[in-house]
Design a protein around this nucleic acid. Structure first.
Length: 459
RNA sequence: UCCCCAGUAGCUCAGUUGGCAGAGCAAUUGGCUGUUAACCAAUGGGUCCGCGGUUCAAGUCCGUGCUGGGGAGCCA
């Protein structure tokens, strides 16, 4: 007989009779004549209760089973006479697969998130982190589903890149050079290196995405991204996942329409497909989540220009630590004011001064601002960052000159503007930040299986 | 990288004015009960983060380092 997963059993209307389950013991309660155990197999948040009677041949072992032990259970699924569960299993046989040792660090009570980070290899066995990582899996699937339905192609952009000036932050160097030799020579000779030149881990798949959007039409990349910034915050990680759609024949407004549709779709998907896990977040992490979901699903996101945002901030009676000034990037407190207090919903900010944005963003007619867009959401800040791309060769070259970028390194990028260039747009959405938003979890380390942050690469 | 806060039992935390190291949970042992983070009792468990200093005496005060957390910058 094959094992049945617990989520399947718990959803049954009537008993199939004899079944086998396999999983891990969450708690055991002994009686004189029998003992109760709660078993979890990771298929869902809920445990199933089993009742083992004293007449089982290995009962003396069974009554010493510890939390965390893996077992296989044969028995009959019956309606539970007790309160709190519909089904339970009357056991006919228990095989102890591996007894958890006494030092098993997870207990039947709440642990702090900080402690659980120190045992990141075991934390998915807790209710909260089980829910987080089931949701993460489901959301990754939902992204592919959304784009499949919209006719996008999935592009797997390279993770090792030769270009070192994408403008998205510090990069991790990739090298095969022998450290001893480098030390002796006093410098890194990249001509000797694996690729014959400098190479780094990617900070964005965007440039690849643009090339493929100009061939396949609508594409998206979804994968890991690396930043060597020494960022010590609850919203940054050195390795994170980013979704980057790139669309041909698409302007800034359509880009925003797409972003809003995406956020609404993913939120709805989470609510529909992860009902039980989402309820845990609402109950134990952030009770205001239902209100947020109502806003995300049922209101139109705000849309204002950078210039309008500056005016709103200047006119507001709010006291800010940093002054509001046209021409500089908004501070966190300014972004939070806009999303949390002024609009009370997600808001797109567009058309930033060219000086504070990268070279590839399309120059507006005023020649002062570019067609950039950020989506600011309450509590998280920037969820999406994107733009309409500069498709005009001469304008693009002029910008690159102004910013002292090595044009020859970008010959292939510039080619796309020579051979059938077309308006196109795209953005990056931080996958972990999206997960933080819909779970209420405040630290990015708690929505990544094994987080990588400055000074921390355990597991 | 900068600013602020914290570090005491396996976990969560208390520790008064500087004066004997504590509780709950977990573990172990026993009891009890169709139990629901079961309950009751007993037992074991400490480099009070490290180093240095002040003092008759430091978990407590001072300096310093490390680790963790919150915030800022950078960004997704």
């Amino acid at each position: 007989m094959k094992r049945t997963k617990i989520n399947i059993l718990l959803a049954l209307e009537k008993t199939p009779g004899e079944i086998i389950i396999k999983g891990w013991v969450r708690t055991r309660r002994n009686s004189k004549e029998f003992c109760f155990m709660e078993i979890n197999d990771g298929s869902c948040l809920k445990n199933i209760q089993i009742i083992a009677n004293k007449d089982l041949e290995n009962y003396s072992d069974i009554e010493t089973i510890t939390t965390g032990t893996s077992i296989a259970v044969e028995g009959r699924l019956v309606e539970s006479p007790g309160k709190g569960q519909k089904w339970e299993i009357q056991v006919s046989k228990i095989e102890i697969i591996n007894m958890a040792q006494d030092s098993y660090p997870l207990q039947k009570k709440r642990h702090s998130d900080e402690f659980l980070r120190t045992i990141a290899h075991l934390r998915p066995r807790t209710n909260k982190y089980g829910a987080v990582f089931r949701l993460r899996s489901e959301m990754a699937f939902a992204i592919h589903k959304f784009y499949k339905e919209k006719g996008f192609r999935y592009l797997t952009a390279p993770l090792i890149t030769g270009s070192d000036a994408e403008g998205a932050g510090e990069m991790f160097r990739v090298t095969g050079l022998d450290p001893e030799k480098v030390k002796k020579q006093g410098k890194m000779d990249f001509k000797e290196d694996f690729f014959g030149q400098e190479s780094n881990l990617t900070v964005s798949g965007q440039l690849s995405g643009e090339m493929f959007a100009l061939a396949l039409g609508d594409v998206y990349t979804f994968g890991p991204t690396f930043r060597a910034e020494n960022s010590n915050t609850s919203r940054h990680a050195a390795e994170f996942w980013m979704l980057e759609p790139e669309m041909a024949f698409c302007d800034l407004k359509e880009n925003m329409d797409h972003g809003e549709e995406l956020v609404k779709y993913l939120t709805q998907h989470a609510i529909n497909e992860c009902h039980e896990d989402m309820n845990l977040f609402t109950s134990f992490v952030d009770k205001s989540l239902p209100k947020l979901f109502d806003i995300l699903l049922n209101t139109e996101f705000g849309r204002i220009s950078y210039t309008q945002a500056i005016e709103i901030l200047l006119k507001s009676k709010q006291k800010f630590e940093f002054p509001v000034e046209y021409g500089t990037d908004l501070q966190s407190e300014h972004e939070r004011f806009l999303a949390e207090i002024y609009f009370k919903k997600p808001v797109f900010l567009t058309d930033y001064p060219k000086e504070i944005k990268p070279f590839y963003m399309r120059m507006n007619d005023d020649e002062k601002t570019v067609a950039a867009v950020d989506l600011l959401v309450p509590r998280i800040g920037e969820l999406i960052g994107g733009s309409q791309r500069e498709e005009r060769l001469s304008v693009l070259e002029k910008r690159m000159e102004e910013m002292n970028l090595p044009m020859e390194d970008y010959w292939w990028y510039l080619d796309s503007r020579k051979f059938g260039s077309a308006p196109h747009s795209g953005f990056g959405l931080g996958f972990e930040r999206f997960l933080m938003m819909i779970t209420g979890i405040n630290n990015i380390r708690d929505v990544i299986p094994f987080p990588r942050t400055p000074g921390s690469i355990d597991f």
